[in-house]
Nucleic acid binder design. Structure first.
Length: 257
DNA sequence: CTAGGGTTAG
């Protein structure tokens, strides 16, 4: 592009860097960023946020954080999406404390967390065994005029199930129904697998049937996990019945044709 | 052109 005198504009650079990020080609991304600078173009919010996300997902949190510094130094606007990427990335890198810190500092940047940002932190706290703190954050949303959606509920439900608090998980599930937040594949998978892992096979089967009844089809991994738990626990009759049903519905590979 | 939630066993 250089030798041919074709001027790339900002969106074009953005698209190319985005493509490179998908393949984790960070060296090439860096080259493009400096080429942009030479051409007098400043990377914008979307480009930087995309790159930051890619760094975190590639397990390079320090690169992601220095990119944040660069954005702030260059006065590139940071948005709620930038913070969502940041907080989620920090949590998944094991830096939950830092994530909490940035969450609290959002107002300093003129920003307020939305449901996605809350969910990222709730998930991080659940996975750090801070379920109480996660719950407090979850309850904070309605007080700030936010309505938790399916993803937010699922993060907390999954947290409760991993802490064997199946009653809390089921309470939340019931509340979703009460307030009209639909359960989707992820939500049901969390519940069915979490309940069976805790040994509540009866409840797991009820929800397994409920999801199918609502047209949400479990994938094969969930089916096999559920079956395996039944066999492990010696619930042979239920296992055989389940397996026949799964085969009949074509949910197990080799059961079609 | 940017963001958040789920699972197997080998």
């Amino acid at each position: 592009m250089k030798g041919k005198n074709i001027k790339a504009d900002l969106p074009l650079y953005g698209t190319i860097i985005w493509g490179l990020c998908i393949e984790s080609k960070f060296e090439d991304s860096k080259l493009l960023l400096s080429e942009m600078k030479e051409n007098g173009l400043t990377a914008n919010t979307v480009i930087c946020t995309t790159l930051m996300d890619a760094y975190f997902k590639a397990g390079e949190p320090s690169e992601a954080l220095s990119l944040l510094d660069e954005m702030l130094d260059s006065r590139i606007e940071v948005t709620v999406v930038t913070f969502c990427v940041l907080i989620d990335g920090l949590c998944k890198s094991g830096l939950v404390r830092e994530a909490i810190d940035y969450f609290g500092r959002m107002p300093d940047f003129g920003l307020h967390p939305n449901v996605a940002v809350y969910t990222a932190l709730i998930d991080g706290l659940c996975k750090k065994n801070c379920i109480e703190r996660a719950r407090n954050l979850f309850d904070e949303m309605p007080k700030r005029d936010m309505i938790p959606d399916t993803t937010a509920y699922t993060a907390l439900i999954d947290g409760y199930l991993k802490h064997e608090s199946f009653k809390e998980a089921l309470n939340l599930k019931n509340r979703m129904t009460e307030v009209g937040v639909d359960l989707d594949l992820n939500a049901y998978t969390s519940l069915v697998w979490g309940l069976s892992r805790c040994g509540h096979l009866q409840e797991a089967r009820v929800l397994f049937h409920e999801m199918i009844g609502r047209g949400i089809l479990p994938d094969e991994i969930l089916c096999i996990s559920l079956l395996k738990k039944h066999y492990e626990r010696g619930n042979m009759d239920e296992a055989i019945e389940l397996q026949n049903e799964m085969m009949g519905r074509g949910l197990l590979s080799g059961s079609k044709n």
